[in-house]
C-alpha cells in the first residue's frame, strides 16, 4: 500500500464519526419520514395503533390541499423577502460601508452582529413587544412620529412582519460572508480603477460586484436552504396565523403532525418540500455555478 492510498483510507476513517452520527440522527430519521409519508400513521386514533400503507394517498391529498400551496407560497415569499432581499441588501450595504475607514466601525459592527446571537424564542418575544398593536406598541409609536396611523402589525401585515424579523436576525450572517468576500478583492484593482477616474458607483458595479459574485451565490445557497427550514421564532411569534398568513413550511408541518396529529401527511409535506428545495439547490449549483 502506498502512503497516498493509506492516507486516503485514513481520511475516510476520520470522516466516519461524522458520517455515522449524521446517518443515525439525521438521514435515517429522514428516510423513516419518507416511509411514514406512504402510510396513514398518526399520533392518535387507529393510525397510531396500526399504521397502514396507503400508497400515494397523502400526496394526492396534498395536491388538492389549498393550505399546503398557501404554505409553499408563503415560504417562497418569506425566503425571497428575508434571505434573498432583506438580509442580503442590508448585509451588503453594511459590509461595503464598514469596509471603509469610518469612525465607530467596531461599534456599528457589534450592534449589527447582536441580533444574530439571539435565541429563536427570545427573538419571538422581543418582536411581540416591538409589533404590539395599538398606540403604545414601539413600531406604532415610530410610525405615529412620522404622521402615520398606528397598526396592529402582526394582524395587518403578518407576512411582512416575519420577514422584517427574520431580516433582523440575519443581516449579520450576510455581512460576515460578504465582508469576507470584499476582503478578497485585491486592493490594486480598486486603486487602478480610481486612477482611471471611475466613480465609486461604477467601481462597485464593474469591479467589486463581479469579483464577489461567487461569494454572493454561496451565501444565497446557504441562506435559502436554512431559511426554508425555519421554525422556532415564527412559532413563538405567530404560530402561523392569522389565518395561515405566516404558515411557512416548518409551521405547516408542525401543525399537521402535532395539532392535527397526521404524521403520515406531515411527512409527505416534508418530502415534497425537500424535493422543491432540491430543485432550488440544483438551480443554484447549475445555473449560478456555486463551486464547492
Amino acid at each position: 500500500m502506498t502512503y497516498q492510498s493509506r492516507a486516503q483510507w485514513q481520511l475516510r476513517l476520520i470522516l466516519l464519526p461524522s458520517a455515522a452520527l449524521l446517518l443515525a440522527l439525521v438521514i435515517w430519521p429522514a428516510l423513516y419520514a419518507v416511509w411514514l409519508s406512504f402510510t396513514n400513521a398518526a399520533l392518535v386514533g387507529p393510525g397510531a395503533a396500526n399504521p397502514r400503507f396507503v400508497g400515494l394517498r397523502n400526496y394526492a391529498r396534498l395536491v388538492g390541499d389549498g393550505d399546503f400551496w398557501n404554505s409553499l407560497m408563503v415560504t417562497g415569499l418569506f425566503v425571497l423577502g428575508s434571505a434573498i432581499i432583506g438580509q442580503f441588501v442590508l448585509g451588503l450595504v453594511s459590509a461595503v460601508l464598514l469596509n471603509r475607514p469610518l469612525r465607530f466601525r467596531a461599534v456599528f459592527n457589534a450592534i449589527i452582529l447582536l441580533p444574530n446571537a439571539v435565541p429563536e424564542v427570545v427573538a419571538g418575544f422581543l418582536w411581540i413587544s416591538m409589533l404590539a398593536g395599538g398606540e403604545r406598541g414601539v413600531l406604532s409609536r415610530i410610525v405615529m412620529g412620522l404622521g402615520l396611523q398606528p397598526q396592529d402589525w402582526l394582524n395587518t401585515f403578518p407576512l411582512t412582519m416575519i420577514i422584517v424579523v427574520n431580516t433582523w436576525r440575519g443581516i449579520a450572517t450576510a455581512m460576515i460572508l460578504l465582508t469576507a468576500g470584499l476582503s478578497s478583492v485585491p486592493k490594486e484593482v480598486h486603486e487602478a480603477a480610481v486612477m482611471d477616474g471611475a466613480k465609486p458607483g461604477q467601481i462597485f458595479r464593474m469591479i467589486t460586484l463581479p469579483l464577489i459574485l461567487p461569494t454572493i451565490f454561496l451565501y444565497m445557497l446557504i441562506s435559502t436552504v436554512s431559511t426554508i427550514s425555519i421554525f422556532g421564532f415564527v412559532y413563538a411569534l405567530t404560530r402561523g396565523g392569522p389565518g395561515g398568513a405566516t404558515e411557512i413550511l416548518g409551521i405547516y408541518l408542525y401543525n399537521q403532525s402535532f395539532t392535527a396529529y397526521q404524521l403520515g401527511y406531515g411527512a409527505a409535506v416534508a418530502v415534497v418540500s425537500l424535493v422543491f428545495s432540491l430543485i432550488v439547490g440544483v438551480i443554484y449549483v447549475r445555473a449560478l455555478k456555486v463551486e464547492v
Binding site: 392518535v44 386514533g45 397510531a48 395503533a49
Partner: peptide, 11 residues
C-alpha cells in the same frame, strides 16, 4: 373529546 382517539391508538 380527546379520550376515544387515545384509546383507539392503544395508549
Amino acid at each position: 373529546s380527546d379520550v376515544p382517539d387515545l384509546a383507539t391508538a392503544g395508549y
